[in-house]
């Protein structure tokens, strides 16, 4: 089994975002971390590798800062890591990013399964995984909450997807692109031995030429999304009300009535 996990670096989830008058987004001096949703994908890949054997490769499109995400994944236990970057890629949307990812996966050649997180905590588009599956022409298994069975001999997989309407069990042939969601597993912490490997490992850098990607299909010219204006949303206004009552049960009853009246529950 060769499992590829797509990952991205993001600012820490506690970072405070701000937008200046020119529309430039800043995350302050927040440390960079692996996109938290990707940790579920890395964990699932490691569990599959331990069960079926094979290799886990983490893949990221990004500048040098992307190494943060790759190192975290290797420290968790991934075997290989590849970074793809060219200055031309800056400003890529999901359409362009999925193109670069697809080209990198095609270059690897022997990939059985690609895992993605459900979204990234900075951009929150939820599209890259689906777009990647479409580009590769592979089944797209997004929002997977339970990997029921992987049959490496038969080259097929059964997963349980978490949808708004409920859960859906689907079977697909391999190779496929699988999007994980919270609850599929409990990602492990990085370990001392993993960190030693991550700190000492070489991280190959693939250029657009290396993966045979066309320059006009990446960056802003390869993207469908335009950003005519970026601004901070107006501060939300709200009010607080303290429920006064004799007993906690009474307070709970009043709160329930208020929530029902507001159609919150």
């Amino acid at each position: 089994m060769h499992i590829v996990v797509c990952t991205k670096y993001t600012p820490d989830s506690e970072a405070k975002m701000s937008v200046d008058e020119e529309g430039n987004i800043s995350w302050g001096d927040s440390p960079l971390i692996i996109n938290p949703w990707d940790e579920y994908s890395v964990e699932e890949a490691l569990l599959l590798r331990d069960q079926h054997g094979g290799t886990v490769t983490v893949l990221s499109v990004g500048p040098e800062a992307a190494l943060e995400a790759l190192k975290h994944a290797v420290a968790m236990g991934a075997d290989e890591a590849v970074r793809v970057w060219d200055e031309a890629c800056a400003g890529s949307d999901t359409l362009a990013t999925s193109y670069v990812l697809a080209k990198a996966v095609e270059k690897m050649g022997d990939v059985d399964l690609v895992l993605c997180g459900k979204s990234t905590i900075d951009a929150q588009t939820w599209q890259t995984g689906v777009a990647l599956a479409t580009r590769l022409g592979w089944p797209s298994l997004m929002y997977t909450i339970n990997l029921v069975e992987l049959r490496s001999e038969e080259r097929s997989i059964t997963v349980e997807r978490l949808l708004e309407e409920g859960r859906q069990v689907v079977e697909a042939p391999l190779p496929a692109v699988l999007g994980t969601t919270k609850g599929i597993n409990e990602p492990r912490y990085t370990s001392f031995i993993g960190i030693r490997k991550a700190a000492q490992m070489e991280y190959p850098l693939w250029t657009l030429e290396d993966i045979g990607a066309e320059r006009e299909k990446v960056g802003p010219q390869g993207s469908g999304v335009r950003w005519p204006e970026v601004f901070e949303p107006p501060a939300r206004e709200g009010e607080a009300e303290i429920i006064e009552a004799e007993t906690i049960e009474e307070k709970a009853r009043i709160l329930t009535e208020m929530l029902l009246a507001e159609k919150v529950i």
């Binding site: 440390p31 190192k71 001392f192 700190a199």
Partner: peptide, 16 residues
Amino acid sequence: WTEEQRLWRRAVRDFA
């Protein structure tokens, strides 16, 4: 700090 020391501090801090 070396790269290994930086990653280790983050790992222990995350866990702890």
